[in-house]
Write a protein that binds this DNA or RNA. Structure first.
Length: 1014
RNA sequence: GCUCAGAUGGUGGAACUGGUAGACACGCAGGACUUAAAAUCCUGUUCCCGUUAAAGGAGUGCGGGUUCGAUUCCCGCUCUGAGUACCA
């Protein structure tokens, strides 16, 4: 052989390894350049031919940058925590660490023989304790931080505690849980340590709270939103259901806006940025409050008298129902007090369980405007809502006094006297019908909707709330109860898929209740419908049928009014028209305005009235961070009671314990529940005793990959995740190459952690990956053979059975294709058969025939240029050993289809085989030559010969006919120099814009030219 | 439905800023070498018409437009791929 690729490649690969040619230092006179590949999960199947595509491109670019005088960091490692190793462990009992190690060795061997210029001294493995120590450390930093919306960054939790101590919760604007409490500095100081911790947990960037999670019973774990597709798990395709669980979460929503803004400053493919934008899903709109209004049932309306009808008219029905119920279910204390207060024993008329505006007061004297509340009754709840109630009622002109159950029971006389005293001193209440509440008051007693089109507010003709909405039960009037319940049952039965299939239809049910239009005070019916999602916005929408197609459908179906609000709206009898053009009509103070003005005016007016405000809504949810799995990073947390505490930093890494099996415990706890002594106990130098059981869930797959590029900068450091100097020098990734499938997972989480690490001062750059390229997916290219079934025995002398079982008939692609398309006239087919099988093989040819063709996958490795190797095929499928092959032009041509690469389709091409046959350089060159880097394309080994021939031709430029190395010191000719310089320039230009395929072809042209000149 | 990307020979693809469409390679056809095959080398290869050679016509998914000139820019449509989805 002339071109000995094996010898050449072995020689140089050994040289690079022995001399550590690609080891790079963290300091240099040269400018830095950081080229990163998405590190692989080392699966058992090893690399297939699609994996190295991106690695080859990045390797070419790294080598190019080195030649251009840069100090290039080009590392590689393994994302080695993950589900498959654990699933395998469950089946076989083999420790995932063992499987992982084996797989890594395979990967390493495969990567090495492709000849990459990685600096292996910096290798990382996310499952290595020396690595995950720092993943846990970052978790601790997140736990100890909160997001201050004033400074727009994360800050240490101590700064929040300091604020609480100074001013209580006042003036703090933070991204936190919805249910944070309001309290004064004095309140804070009076809190127990535990109460303080509970409150702080609502602010921490990683926190524990009960949340609805995607639970996958088959995998026995929760999944993040990006790990669920159409209601099934991305890995394995198991069904996923919603479940409430105590879970660790990451407050990524704090960074929603920065994650969105940052996209403008980075050089990423537009589709990828678009995916992230959609995932974050920012919508600018407004929150509008619709207060509730009664169902005007005739009986009630006529008898209501001003002095006594103190309830918000909206709520009369509902509140009345509740009042009655409360009276039936009254507490001992309430009954006692009622005995003392009833029948004007105090000299004043007292009412019991009476509706006031949107509340129900335990006892009330309407004349004096005094409300007496007994804690522990219907409204038994936390201090916060009591305070809110009191404030709201005060504003409505009522005085509120409050007694506890104990007080009423043990000191009934004193309590009664106190009430009488109060009644005697109070002036009569002024009856003011126009009372209204300001924003935030009477929470839960109005329906809040989120809308991006406040401008259409006068087109609202009904409200729709999600069937799961918390107000549904309270809003449903007795007459509509059956209907609503039936509808809820019906929607619950519907699966995700059904819902999607029904996307074009709408259904719903009327609650029987009404809300008040914030501007006109008109009554607006409240419906429930499953096209409104509980999880987005407030779970309630204002329906504007003239401006929204779904609302229009709903209105049409249930005969609700459709009000035109813009003169530009067209065809409202056929559709909803969401236009923003034209001027407003039927819209009171918005009439005549244009879209922009109308929006601004509407929002301003809502804010004036306290009925709403401008609001930005995000689709992005906080990321669930716990997995009920073994093979992941342990969470460095122990529990004292129900409260989580961090372990001491000096105890990192918290090493994954050994377990006897990798399954959940009998009581349903995660596998770590099986570990012995999984318990923390530590005495600090100051004498503090830390003790409790460790967290049982582990971190999700994306934890380790959310910061790994920093570890490469200083992989051996055991004092820091990377030294300040190293981070100072390398800063960020200049070029990142990887698949677009990580758009809403890894790439978003990494940006989030990076921003956090920047906020708390550990890293420098706001964005981690300056330029990103998605290499296209390599699809599989399957080959097929076609088996012909005859419906009669007339074709061959052998009988039918024989034909079918012992002599299968396989026809070449173009014949099969014509048969399938019905383009094969019987006489022509007869001729083909006769030619190939012999005239005497045929009996009389039937006039009517129907031929059935079955296509079968055939291993692409025994097909060359779509021509089947018959001998290899007979080995591959022994059942076809004695088959008859009907050829075309003397060959059996296989059919072709592009599919996903998978074993079952026999279309997997292993790089090892290619390297064995042609060498690594041919593989690398061919993968690049296949087409543009970013384009998805099927792997097709056809044509690899051309690249191989080119390499040989190139080699021959420097070798004589006897294959001896021969170059001369002669001056090159002008023509030779011209060819050389042309190629230098072209390759440079092409590589700069990652057009590697064209630079390969330029080099081919150059070699052709030089060969001609030789 | 929405968003994004794309559509060029038998195939993968090239044409970078509007300036000779089809580079480079595969495949195919013919030829040389060989007893033969493989390998290698040479020639041809967008389509149509035509041919000794030529000459001509059409052509970058479809229909329009801007321009001296359009694969490239604009408008409308068709199809393919990807993402996403009752997101208010």
């Amino acid at each position: 052989m002339d071109y000995q690729f094996r010898e050449i490649e072995n020689k140089w690969q050994r040289f690079w390894a022995e001399n550590q040619t690609y080891k790079v230092k963290n300091s240099s006179d040269k400018p830095k350049y950081y080229v990163l590949d998405m590190f692989p999960y080392p699966s058992g199947a090893g690399l297939h031919v699609g994996h190295p595509l991106g690695y080859i491109a990045s390797d070419i670019y790294s080598r190019y940058k080195r030649l251009k005088g840069f100090n290039v960091l080009h590392p590689m490692g393994y994302d080695s925590f993950g589900l498959p190793a654990e699933q395998y462990a469950i089946q076989t009992g083999q420790h995932p660490a063992v499987t992982t190690e084996e797989n890594i060795n395979t990967y390493r061997r495969q990567l090495d023989q492709i000849g990459f210029s990685f600096d292996w001294s910096r290798e990382v493995r996310t499952s290595d304790p020396g690595y995950y120590k720092w993943t846990q450390w970052i978790f601790m930093k997140l736990f100890n931080s909160w997001y201050n919306q004033e400074s727009e960054k994360a800050e240490p939790i101590d700064t929040l505690i300091a604020k609480f101590e100074r001013n209580g919760s006042e003036g703090i604007i933070a991204v936190a849980d919805d249910e944070v409490n309001t309290f004064s500095a004095a309140d804070w100081k009076s809190f127990t340590e535990e109460e303080k911790q509970v409150e702080l947990l609502k602010y921490r960037l990683t926190y524990l709270r009960e949340s609805t999670v995607n639970w996958c019973p088959a995998l026995g774990t929760v999944l993040a939103n990006d790990e669920v597709k159409d209601g099934f798990s991305e890995r394995g395709g198991f069904p996923v259901e919603q479940k409430k669980m105590m879970q660790w979460s990451m407050r990524i929503t704090a960074y929603a806006d920065r994650l969105l803004q940052g996209l403008n400053d980075i050089d990423w493919p537009e589709p990828l940025k678009e995916m992230q934008r959609n995932w974050i899903g920012k919508s600018v709109g407004a929150l509008v409050r619709f207060s509730l209004t009664p169902n005007p049932s005739p009986g009630e309306r006529g008898t209501a008298e001003t002095g006594y009808k103190t309830a918000d008219p909206a709520l009369w029905d509902i509140l009345k129902t509740h009042s009655r119920q409360n009276r039936k279910e009254s507490t001992v204390a309430e009954d006692l007090l009622w005995q003392a207060l009833r029948n004007s024993q105090t000299g004043f008329k007292i009412r019991r369980q009476h509706a006031i505006h949107t509340y129900i007061a335990d006892f009330i004297c309407l004349k004096k405007g005094l409300i007496i509340e007994v804690d522990g009754g219907y409204h038994a709840s936390n201090k916060e809502s009591d305070t809110l109630r009191t404030e709201a009622l005060n504003r409505l002109g009522f005085e509120v006094i409050r007694f506890s159950n104990e007080e009423v029971i043990s000191k009934t006389i004193e309590v009664t006297n106190a009430i009488r005293g109060k009644l005697e001193t109070l002036p009569d209440r002024k009856i003011d019908e126009t009372v209204s509440l300001s924003p935030g008051e009477g929470r839960g007693e109005a329906i809040e909707v989120f809308t991006t089109r406040v401008d259409t507010i006068f087109g609202v003709t009904f409200l729709v709330i999600a069937p799961e909405h918390e107000l549904v039960e309270r809003l449903t009037t007795p007459e509509h109860k059956d209907e609503i319940e039936a509808y809820i049952i019906q929607t619950k039965k519907k699966s995700e898929l059904d819902r999607m299939a029904d996307a074009k239809t709408v259904s719903g049910a009327f609650t029987g209740s009404y809300a008040l239009h914030p501007f006109t005070g008109e009554q607006i019916p409240i419906w429930i419908a499953d096209y409104v999602l509980a999880g987005y916005g407030t779970g309630a929408v204002m329906a504007v049928p003239s401006g929204d197609q779904r609302d229009w459908l709903f209105a049409t179906q249930y005969h609700l009014p459709i009000v035109q609000i813009l003169d530009a709206q067209k065809d409202l009898d056929k559709q909803g028209d969401p236009t923003k053009e034209g001027r407003y009509v039927n819209s009171h103070f918005l009439d005549g305005l244009k879209y922009k003005e109308a929006t601004a005016v509407a929002v301003a007016k809502l804010e004036d009235l306290g009925k709403g405000k401008a609001k930005v809504n995000y689709r992005l949810r906080d990321a669930i961070f716990g997995r009920q799995r073994y093979w992941g990073e342990p969470v460095p947390v122990y529990f004292k009671g129900d409260l989580p505490h961090l372990i001491d930093e000096s105890d990192l890494p918290l090493v994954l314990p050994e377990v006897d099996a990798y399954l959940p415990t009998e009581s349903g706890e995660p596998p770590l529940g099986r570990a012995e002594d999984w318990h923390y106990s530590k005495v600090l130098p100051d004498g503090a005793h830390l003790e409790g059981s460790y967290e049982l869930s582990t971190m999700p797959g994306w934890a380790g990959s959310s910061w790994y590029w920093y570890r490469y900068m200083d992989a051996q450091n055991d004092q820091e995740f990377a030294s300040k100097e190293a981070i100072e020098y390398w800063k960020d990734v200049d070029l990142y190459i990887g698949g677009s499938e990580h758009a809403t997972g890894h790439l978003l989480y990494s940006r989030f952690w990076n921003k956090f690490l920047k906020d708390v001062g550990y890293v420098i750059e706001e964005e981690p990956f300056k330029k990103l390229i998605n290499q296209g997916m390599i699809q599989g290219r399957s080959n097929f053979v076609y088996r012909l079934f005859l419906d009669s025995a007339h074709y061959l002398k052998d009988n039918f059975e024989l034909v079918q079982k012992e002599k299968p008939l396989l026809v070449s692609f173009n014949i099969a294709d014509r048969i399938l398309k019905g383009q094969m006239p019987p006489h022509e087919f007869k001729e083909i058969l006769a030619n190939q099988l012999g005239e005497d093989a045929l009996l009389e040819f039937p006039i009517r025939t129907s031929l059935m063709v079955q296509h079968l996958h055939v291993d692409v490795n025994i097909v060359e240029n779509d021509v089947l190797n018959l001998e290899k095929f007979k080995n591959f499928r022994p059942e076809f050993a004695n088959a008859e092959f009907i050829l075309e032009s003397g060959k059996y041509i296989c059919g072709v289809e592009v599919e996903k690469m998978s074993k079952s389709k026999f279309n997997v091409v292993n790089p090892d085989d290619i390297i064995e046959r042609y060498g690594a350089d041919t593989l690398r060159l061919y993968e690049m030559f296949l087409g543009p880097l970013e384009q998805s394309k099927p792997w097709n080994t056809n044509g690899i010969e051309g690249v191989f021939k080119f390499l040989r031709k190139f080699w021959k430029l420097f070798h004589d006919d006897q294959f001896n190395f021969r170059v001369s010191d002669q001056e090159p000719t002008k023509a030779e120099l011209k060819a050389l310089h042309k190629i230098i320039r072209q390759v440079e230009e092409d590589v700069e814009r990652f057009s590697v395929n064209t630079s390969v072809s330029s080099v081919m042209i150059c070699v052709n030219e030089l060969t001609d000149l030789k």
